[in-house]
Design a protein around this nucleic acid. Structure first.
Length: 270
DNA sequence: AAAGACACCTGTCCGC
DNA sequence: TGCGGACAGGTGTCTT
């Protein structure tokens, strides 16, 4: 999926088209996403989308009666199209608006979701146990240090744990650890406060930079207007196996941590 | 409680 | 050209 910057970019891309607009119709062509799209999503019809928000990688479409919770999974994208645009193969859900635009979810792998909740979103099961936003002031080295105490899990898996901090995906986990000079395999509880300060700064920096540039584009992200291949942030280690490190020329290594590919420079990261 | 494995699904790429 | 297998940006849930 889109990493956090792509979700943020998507939010910013769709919000101007749908905030303050009334939903006319919900069309579900394929309800089998990560969880079944509930029938209750129809309650969104005739509601005005008051605000589009993001929490972690969840997009929240708030209305008077409830909130649609949308996740893009690994391969999802949202775009705004005209009502008469014919759906393509993996266009599973349409949220059509009275002003003639359609918010269309495409998700080939169907790891995403579209849910509906009438409770306060912060109390929703998927949302209530999430850690702080990485770009908020709540995400500090002191916080991370406290959380990491006695934890033996690798620092890379640790920062990808949404209960610790949200929004650090597989690309930016490797990239921020490279930037901070920390070996991805190091036990979380054995990273000094000083080095965690560097890491927190690196995570914020890499995410901010990527959001500024509109999100790193890899295989199947298309931005909210439907263009693709638009943005490209410079990656230093992700997907660079065997290539010389940009800092010291040592070949980049690839290992698996928590079943995810992990990239690092064996010389720069300790 | 924490760590690790597994599940969901389709498309693409690589080697034979 | 075809086919099998590995792999892909996520994350909730189950097992150890």
């Amino acid at each position: 999926m889109p990493e956090l910057p792509e979700v943020e970019t998507t939010k910013n891309g769709i919000a101007p088209y749908i905030e303050g607009k009334a939903v006319s119709c919900i069309i579900v062509r394929q309800a089998k996403l990560r969880w079944p799209v509930p029938d209750s999503i129809k309650k969104m019809q005739n509601q005005i989308v008051q605000r589009v928000q993001r929490r972690a990688k969840y997009l929240l479409l708030e209305t008077q009666k409830g909130t649609a919770i949308i996740h893009l999974g690994m391969s999802g994208s949202l775009r705004v199209v005209e009502t008469d645009t014919p759906p393509e193969k993996h266009d599973h859900v349409d949220i059509a608006f009275e002003h003639g635009k359609v918010l269309r979810l495409r998700d080939p792998r169907r790891f995403g979701c579209v849910l509906w909740t009438q409770e306060p979103v912060n109390e929703h099961k998927l949302i209530c146990n999430l850690g702080p936003e990485p770009l908020s002031d709540d995400f500090t080295a002191a916080y991370l240090f406290e959380q990491a105490k006695n934890r033996k899990v690798s620092i890379k898996v640790f920062i990808m744990n949404a209960q610790i901090v949200v929004g650090v995906g597989n690309i930016y986990a490797s990239e921020s650890l490279f930037m901070a000079g920390i070996h991805p395999k190091r036990a979380a509880g054995r990273v000094s406060l000083k080095r965690l300060k560097t890491l927190v700064a690196s995570i914020k920096k890499v995410l901010k930079k990527s959001i500024e540039q509109g999100g790193t584009t890899l295989k199947d992200f298309a931005n909210a207007e439907g263009q693709s291949g638009y943005f490209q942030v410079a990656l230093h280690v992700y997907g660079k196996t065997g290539e010389p490190c940009s800092h010291c020329s040592t070949p980049i290594k690839q290992i698996k941590l928590g079943q995810r590919s992990t990239f690092y420079c064996p010389s720069c990261q300790k």
